[in-house]
Amino acid sequence: MTVTLNAHQLGRLLERTVGHIGDEALPMLHGVLLEADATYLYAVATDRYTLAVARYRHHGLDGTPFARTLPARALPALRRWLTCLPGHDPVTLTLTGHKARLAAPQGEMSLTTDDAQEYIDWRGLLRGIIKQTENSDGTETACPVLDTDKISRFGAADTRLRMWVSPGRTAALLAGEDFIGAQMPMRTMESGFPTSLADDLDHLHTLWDATLTSALAGTEPVSGVLARYTVPGASRTVAGITKDLLHQTMRSTRDLFEEDGDSPTALAAHAASGVTAWSAYRYLEALHRADPKLAAQVVAETAGELDSGELGEFAYDAAHAAGFNPQSWEDNTETKTKTGPAAPVSVTDDAPVSDSDTATS
């Protein structure tokens, strides 16, 4: 029984589920269950209060579907081993008896699996939660109160999760891209909240109505503040920036062909804008496929940099850190502005900055 996927994706399966592992008092839940079918490799963990299931479409299953539990005691070493591998390296997981062997181009690792005890029927549990849409007697039900400490365990699952709340004191369902999970609510006596939905809403209105319906004298509407300080196109999600980049590519291409040709500068600007937007889209697409979490982080950080407006300073510092001589670029541009076109920048202008260059600049 063998399955293959890359090191990054196997590490991410573990990252998204290890926070839900049960304690040592429940040996059968004290680890991560790995299951493979013809399409996906699944990682499953539960502590009875939360349940997390992550999946990834593997590169191929050689043999019959399998299910084995990786014990919690072995997971730290396994996760450290995976971080030492290039993310794109293929990792082949082979199960033989109670042994799990992981083989990569740069090394191998062997683990003993805890499969003596039967794991819970996580599929059946989730099916039951999904089907729960109303109370059997048709009565209105209370909103469940969720423990935020347990909610935080889903932080590694995705940048966004959609949540459905089933009626009664049953579990909340959470879903993301190739991820599904559930969380049980707190008991009413523990939560301190009223027991009925109507009481919950009435209590919330009582606490917040005055604040939410009043405005301080002389303040701007929120929409006005956002319009003034938000940089157009500075999306903070991968989906948003992907849309912006594709739109910009199409717009620049259209403007390029609609130019009358009398302005070489305008033609060059449209061409540069389209090429840059398309290149950024392709790089972001590749990053998102390789590491969705890192892609989301980079997009958010970039949006903050765009909001600051200090792109020139950022670029100068980045060029210097990369070993180039950005001061020579500035000098060349200034000379060209004052005296007309200058000689092309030589190869030495892009050489790493020497100590003397640094002192001069």
Rank of each mutant, 00 (worst) to 15 (best):
H58S: 07
P65V: 03
T50M: 00
Q117M: 13
E118Q: 13
L111D: 03
L111V: 09
D121C: 08
G87V: 08
Q132V: 04
A52V: 06
W164F: 08
C143V: 13
L146T: 08
G63M: 11
Y56V: 15
L161R: 10
I151Y: 00
E134M: 04
R73M: 13
W164E: 15
I130K: 13
S152W: 07
R101F: 06
G60A: 08
E118F: 03
K150A: 13
D121T: 04
R153D: 03
G176V: 06
M109L: 13
R127E: 15
A156N: 12
H88K: 07
P144F: 10
P76N: 09
R162Q: 10
G60P: 08
H59P: 00
R123N: 14
V53A: 07
A67D: 09
T112K: 10
T83G: 10
G168Q: 01
R169T: 15
A52W: 03
A67F: 00
T92Y: 11
A172F: 02
L161N: 09
A74W: 00
R160D: 02
E140F: 13
G124H: 11
A171F: 08
E177I: 06
T133M: 01
V53G: 04
P71A: 07
C143R: 00
D147K: 06
R55E: 13
G168F: 01
G138H: 05
L174Q: 07
P167H: 08
R123W: 13
A157L: 09
G60M: 08
L102P: 09
A104Y: 08
A104F: 12
L174N: 09
G87L: 14
L125G: 03
G124E: 02
S136P: 02
S166M: 09
T113R: 02
T112P: 00
L82E: 12
G60K: 11
G168L: 06
V44W: 12
G97N: 01
E177V: 08
D137H: 06
P71H: 06
D178L: 12
E134L: 00
Y56M: 14
R48V: 00
A175F: 03
A74S: 14
L70R: 05
E177L: 04
P86Q: 15
R162D: 05
G63W: 11
T96Y: 03
L174H: 02
G138S: 05
G176I: 01
V91D: 15
G155R: 11
P105L: 07
T139A: 12
R73K: 12
A52Q: 00
M109Y: 01
H58F: 08
G138D: 04
L93T: 04
D114L: 06
R162K: 11
T148A: 14
T69I: 03
R162H: 12
E140T: 15
A172K: 01
Y119A: 13
S136F: 07
D114W: 05
L173K: 01
R123I: 02
S136M: 04
R48A: 11
D47H: 01
T141K: 00
R68G: 00
R68L: 14
C143I: 12
L93H: 07
A72W: 01
E177F: 06
R169H: 12
R68T: 08
R153V: 03
L61K: 00
T46E: 06
T139G: 09
A142S: 13
G87T: 10
T94A: 14
L126G: 05
L174T: 04
T112S: 11
